[in-house]
Design a protein around this nucleic acid. Structure first.
Length: 590
RNA sequence: CGGGGUGUGGCGCAGCUUGGCAGCGCGUCUGCUUUGGGAGCAGAAGGCCGCAGGUUCAAAUCCUGUCACCCCGACCA
């Protein structure tokens, strides 16, 4: 490959585009790789297209290596199959919908579980056919409420999605592991810095799930990492260590109901308790009972109360992640109004004085869950289920018994690791890959069975795996740049070597000659042969474009010397012209 | 959906308060000079000032409406 800057369809920009905030967006536009076509929709120019293909090729090679087979589905899909799984409605406004001339409904595919499942069902029938892994690299459409950050989160983007089909759970586990390994190889080759974190399965349904996150301050995902073991998880999926069990209930006095006028919030309650009732408590000693509502698909909303320490907020995303596919939402005032027994701001789980079993919420028939931070035996200050009154010394296991535990609190820096008990730190990241074991949701929807050796049907179990290909380009740019421009990893770079002919005498001629010889040796060459362009402009463009190796044919040429530069290290070496070809090849091989 | 902001040559922006020939930098074109860190001189092309209506002798500027885009949040792979 030989690209000449004199004819290359490329215009670099001296200034950052006004609508760009994040580094990758600014740089990809300035370097002339992409241009915005509409909100969240981008066109790829020649250099950008090359980089994008390079990333896709790495993904493709690693998928093929592990035995997956490439296919290609249309992006324009009929409504029916999405109707069968309920996703025509479940996906909501995020789905791009359109009608054909006859008025029939179509959609632009946001992901392709349905189509893959149907294709396998159409072709395969015997247990002898399985397992199989299929994938495609294709354009996806999601009408995001707010696309942002350029290529990082678009409405049209390129994704590699693959799907595994196995006869049993063991097989699924194996397919999952194959993907995990392939993803590790892929992201290593892409030169990405990433973490593998436990995740929830999101809208896809299913069980085991991990995300590949590229740590990045502008990322949209928040995840925790343990400071001592290798535990890492999305905050939606995190498991925290429970605090050491509190003192046994026998040492705690009986429940005491106290007047606490005008204390509907935790702050006012703590202040009042300490001032008027001689207690010495903090928000963490209070038990906050948050009224939520849940809904199973196709059913009515049901109230749910969740108890968390008063210094914590309830993280709805985290709850939803664990309850999937059940929806969770904050209860409205109208919802509360239907239960007069729920006194807003003064809700407590304990039963009437002296009754250990049941408790107030059980009497109302409302499900009550607590965060594991509310340990058995722990004592709390909480609502007394009467306006302006609270109860102290309310002990879990003595005065109330929740229906179960669920990780509900918002995770904080310094919370403890559920695996080893050490401190957790919180970081931001961008999701570049996601693997999960779908199970039989889609196989059930389409009755995807294989005939077993005993002539009985076996329901197939599936896995679903994605890599954001176009997003990966942006993430690489995000992680690999400096104040002068992009710094591409070699395998992804638009070229192996960027030859700059500075323009005087025969410098451009020699540059072109070197370019031809390097191309003949199998290198991908970009040569700046523009006449009448000053050296400063060419150097700046070379640094902006970020090709890993540069060869400058300039003022040293008269003495038979050219300059070899390394973009990443920033080094410059004067080398004899006669050695230039071999030295460049050596540099590109390292 | 809530909050904030912006729409003016290809790109980045000023002008708007206080109405009076549409400007600046970069880029582009022509000529000459220049060629190791975003060159110089001379000349040139290029804009329905987002759109619609209104006020006025006169609107980029004031008023009304509308559309679009960007940012934060909500939401969402």
């Amino acid at each position: 490959m030989l690209l000449r800057m004199s004819t290359l369809f490329l215009r670099t920009l001296r200034e950052d585009p006004a609508d760009a905030e994040v580094p990758s967006h600014k740089l990809l536009v300035r370097a002339g790789l992409v241009r915005r076509a509409a909100p969240g929709i981008y066109s790829w120019l020649p250099l950008g297209k090359i980089v994008l293909e390079n990333v896709a090729q790495v993904v493709r090679e690693e998928m093929n290596r592990m035995g997956a087979q490439e296919v290609l589905f249309p992006a324009l899909l009929p409504r029916e199959s999405y109707e069968a799984t309920g996703r025509w409605t479940e996906y909501g406004d995020t789905l791009f919908r359109l009608k054909d001339r006859k008025g029939a409904d179509y959609l632009l595919g946001p992901t392709h579980e349905e189509m893959f499942t149907l294709m396998v069902k159409g072709e395969y029938g015997s247990y002898k056919d399985y397992p199989v892994i299929l994938y495609q690299i294709q354009t996806k459409y999601r009408d995001e409420a707010r696309p942002r950050a350029g290529i990082l989160r678009g409405r049209e983007f390129i994704m590699k999605d693959s799907y595994s089909f196995d006869l049993d759970d063991e097989g699924l586990k194996h397919s999952y592991e194959l993907h995990r390994e392939a993803y590790i190889k892929t992201f290593d080759r892409l030169g990405l810095d990433y973490k593998i974190v436990f995740a929830t399965s999101g809208a896809m349904g299913g069980s085991a799930s991990e995300e590949f996150l590229a740590p990045c301050p502008t990322g949209e995902d928040t995840f925790v990492q343990c400071t001592s073991c290798d535990y890492a998880a999305n905050t939606e999926a995190v498991v925290l260590a429970a605090p050491t069990p509190a003192a046994t209930s026998k040492e705690v006095p009986d429940v005491k109901v106290l007047d606490t006028p005008q204390t509907p919030t935790i702050e006012t309650l703590v202040a009042y308790m300490n001032e008027h009732h001689g207690l010495s408590i903090t928000a963490a000693d209070t038990l906050k009972n948050v009224v939520l509502k849940t809904r199973k698909p196709g059913e009515d909303w049901e109230l749910l109360v969740v108890g968390v320490p008063g210094d914590r907020e309830v993280d709805l995303d985290r709850l939803e992640g664990q309850l999937e596919p059940i929806e969770v939402d904050q209860a409205d005032p109208e919802d509360l109004a239907k239960h007069p027994g729920l006194v807003r701001g003064y809700i407590g789980p304990q039963g009437r004085a002296g009754t250990a079993d049941g408790g107030h919420l059980a009497e109302l028939g409302i499900r009550y869950l607590v965060d594991p931070l509310v340990t058995p035996g722990s004592a709390w200050v909480t609502g007394a289920n009467e306006q302006d009154r609270h109860a102290a010394y309310v002990v879990r296991g003595r005065d109330f018994e929740p229906d179960g535990e669920i990780g509900a609190v918002n995770v904080r820096e310094g919370d403890r690791c559920g695996r080893c008990g050490s401190t957790l730190t919180i970081s931001r990241g961008i999701e570049i890959g996601h693997i999960f074991q779908l199970g039989r949701k889609y196989a059930d929807a389409f009755s995807l069975d294989a005939l077993g050796p005993d002539a009985r049907p076996v329901r197939i179990t599936m896995g679903s795996y994605g890599i954001g290909v176009s997003r990966a380009v942006a993430v690489i740019a995000e992680q690999s740049h400096d104040e002068r421009g992009l710094v591409w990893p070699r395998e992804i770079a638009p070229a192996d070597v960027h030859i700059v002919g500075t323009g005087k005498d025969n410098q451009i001629e020699v540059a072109l000659d070197l370019a031809a010889r390097l191309e003949a040796r199998g290198l991908r060459v970009l040569v700046d042969d523009r006449a009448g362009v000053s050296p400063g402009v060419k150097f700046n463009d070379a640094e902006l474009l970020g090709v890993p190796t540069a060869l400058v044919v300039g003022r040293g040429l008269a003495q038979g010397v050219v300059e070899l530069r390394d973009r990443k290290a920033g080094t410059k070496d004067e080398i004899p012209l006669a050695e230039a070809v071999d030295r460049v090849i050596a540099a590109c091989a390292s």
